[in-house]
Design a protein around this nucleic acid. Sequence first.
DNA 1: AAATTATGTGACCAATCGGTAACATAAATA
DNA 2: TATTTATGTTACCGATTGGTCACATAATTT
Lengths: 213, 213
Amino acid sequence: MSEKQVKNKEQTMQRILTAVEVILAEEGFGALGINRIAKQADVGKALIYRYFGGLEGVIDAYGETDSFWPSVYEIRGMSKEAFISLSLRERCKTIFRNFRQALKKRPHTVAIYAWEMVEKNDITKNLIANRTQSSLNVVQEMLSESKQVYSKYDHEMTALLGAALLHLTIREHMESPFAGLSLDSEKTWDRIEGALDTIFTGLETLHLSTSKR
Amino acid sequence: MSEKQVKNKEQTMQRILTAVEVILAEEGFGALGINRIAKQADVGKALIYRYFGGLEGVIDAYGETDSFWPSVYEIRGMSKEAFISLSLRERCKTIFRNFRQALKKRPHTVAIYAWEMVEKNDITKNLIANRTQSSLNVVQEMLSESKQVYSKYDHEMTALLGAALLHLTIREHMESPFAGLSLDSEKTWDRIEGALDTIFTGLETLHLSTSKR
DNA sequence: AAATTATGTGACCAATCGGTAACATAAATA
DNA sequence: TATTTATGTTACCGATTGGTCACATAATTT
């Protein structure tokens, strides 16, 4: 009764949200407008106003979609128990790797992330606010219940590395080189991970040498 | 003879370029168009086509402006000789600090940087290509003539930290929090620098312990 | 089956976009 | 001073933008 009917609100709303995703993934935010969405969804744009209240509303709605943001579990890549048993170093490396994979699967999320850096308005404000808590949870989870601490700057350090990962991922997505690195090559990413590993090795060495005395 | 005349090509071109800068700084790239530039510069838009060949041309021209990109010297903050005499760790910290200050002085540059991540077209391609060499020079200069090396991933490591700095600076510029850090506070940045320092301390410790044996 | 409610369509609006022409006027040249 | 050249202005073009409306039609209720 609900699948084959010609007029179907839910289905139409879904088509609109999917259109947002497709546009973001394929053309970026510059192309995201009411007319473009209506065209992509093959829907009269009046419906976007009726169902979502306009551009802001439909983007807000999309921001709450499952396909938009990876779950904490996906970023962990394992159960909480297994994760907690890891060393801080392994935790960071795991999250770094999984987060990158998660973003690779969601080019539209990367596009939104990039957009948040270029536009400051009510729409981006809401998107950021909604997601900030989620990212905080990841940091919290990484650091919490860990007896091992590198320094009093652990939070800043994870933020620093998270920012780097995000930035490089965005540039990879935009096929834009950075500081002479070809981010389209998996070898480059292996080396980046190597650098990361070196950093953690250094921190552990430091931790040992200072905790000894 | 050239200051007070009513019709002055150079002066008008400068007004147009300044308009680009103002728009980028105050409204971002979304607002940057031929009509908007002409309005801001208080100039007929036909002149933009005549002098620069269009939107792409005027942005290209702006990209080559002095006020757009900091010089290598500004990023160093000192003479090349003085810089080379520093330890690798001090070099990184210096560049980190100076680069941040340089970007703070150039909100329009930050805006362009952000835009490069959201739009991929011929304009951004050119901007990136022109500047990639410059950023490479900084990395080269930092690492070159340095007998001290942390690991075989030195290049990736500097890129990693550069990406982090850039990303956090952009978010600061957009008044957007990141991973729970309030980037508008100088204290936060002090702590970030502390984290950076810790990382380098670790790398030096590691370097010593491995070079001993 | 008839009436009502909800969903989808299309035409239309003013504003703005990038772009081009004809025109006016100041500056430089003859 | 008269003429040419270069600089700046204005009006206009078609296309597209966000937004609203009346209308048609399918789904639901009476």
